[in-house]
């Protein structure tokens, strides 16, 4: 599948934003975060800003962005619609949560409840995003059990890493946050490895034989495509990533997305234990930046490595 920049930016940014929201809500609910104005303002602005920027970026992908609002109508069947509805819906508890925290200085009680609801809504939005892909049968590399957990865990991971920075910035106690971040990175890593193993060892039920029904005659090979030059289908679904590049990109994704954040987060833990706040902050920032890069590469790969059944009609041996 063609890795469209707008979609990569969208899922990376909203993932981080919703992840951060999830953690803010949870931490507040558990009373782990003081209702400090500066922190609240920055944290919620960052989370909502990332989410909003991501959502905006996604409309760049549309042929008619001015009609985007129509996408809210089909929540009963469409995961994309559900994602839209959830994304909008999440603004409500998140907004109330923010009002309580930033303007009223409260993140407990009913305000904490708003936070929890925002958490759940955020996670649900990411879930919907994952389901958009996981429900597409023509793309076996998307339509599998690894995809939704992957989206969720990567959102939690990038969110936790951001939270960690914020806590350091405001010199708030961050032990649990960094622990959560380390756990999230580890989980995300495992999920991604599981995903890769899955796509490397399985393939779609659909084959050139089933796509054409000609398997009854023998092995099916494309002789001629309908048109000699590229068309929409080939540009959109025919993206081909050489195995060599894929392996390299996976290494980069793994290193930047997981290994580095993991190591750097351990470094944060170590710096914290030494009371070296400045170093902790620096390492936390590095960890988040590295993860952002890694996740963007991972997203690119998520598209680049995905194969669509339509390519079975254009010479692909498998989907």
């Amino acid at each position: 599948m063609h890795p469209a920049a707008s979609v990569i930016i969208f899922t990376t940014l909203t993932g981080a934003g919703y992840g951060l929201l999830v953690w803010l809500g949870l931490f507040a609910a558990f009373g782990l975060l003081p209702a400090e104005f500066g922190f609240g303002l920055l944290a919620l602005a960052l989370a909502l800003g990332l989410v909003s920027a991501g959502l905006l970026a996604s409309t760049a992908h549309l042929g008619h962005p001015e009609r985007a609002w129509r996408a809210l109508s089909q929540w009963r069947t469409s995961w994309l619609s559900r994602e839209g509805v959830m994304a909008l819906a999440a603004y409500v508890p998140a907004g109330l949560f923010a009002i309580g925290w930033v303007f009223l200085g409260r993140n407990d009680g009913i305000w904490a409840m708003f936070g929890l609801v925002a958490s759940v809504a955020s996670a649900a939005t990411v879930y919907c995003t994952g389901m958009i892909y996981a429900s597409l049968k023509p793309v076996q590399r998307w339509c599998n059990a690894w995809v939704v957990p992957g989206y969720l865990l990567l959102a939690l991971m990038t969110g936790a890493l951001l939270l960690n920075i914020l806590l350091h910035l405001f010199a708030l106690q961050g032990g649990s946050a960094i622990g959560v971040a380390i756990l999230a990175v580890a989980a995300g890593w495992a999920a991604k490895r599981g995903y890769w193993r899955f796509i490397d060892t399985t393939s779609a039920a659909s084959t050139p034989a089933s796509a054409t029904g000609l398997g009854r005659i023998g092995a099916v090979r494309l002789l001629d495509a309908p048109h000699t030059e590229e068309n929409y289908l080939l540009k959109e679904m025919g993206f081909q990533l050489a195995r060599k590049h894929a392996a390299k990109l996976r290494r980069i994704a793994e290193l930047a997305g997981f290994a580095m954040p993991f190591a750097l987060s351990l470094g944060v833990l170590w710096a914290n234990s030494l009371g070296a706040g400045g170093a902790g902050l620096a390492l936390a920032v590095l960890a988040a930046l590295s993860a952002a890069l890694g996740v963007a590469v991972e997203r690119w790969l998520f598209f680049g490595e995905a194969k669509h059944t339509v390519m079975l009609y254009y010479g692909a041996g498998r989907a």
Partner: peptide
Amino acid sequence: MAFDFLAGP
């Protein structure tokens, strides 16, 4: 339901 009107006629 609620959002159906967004789909237009």
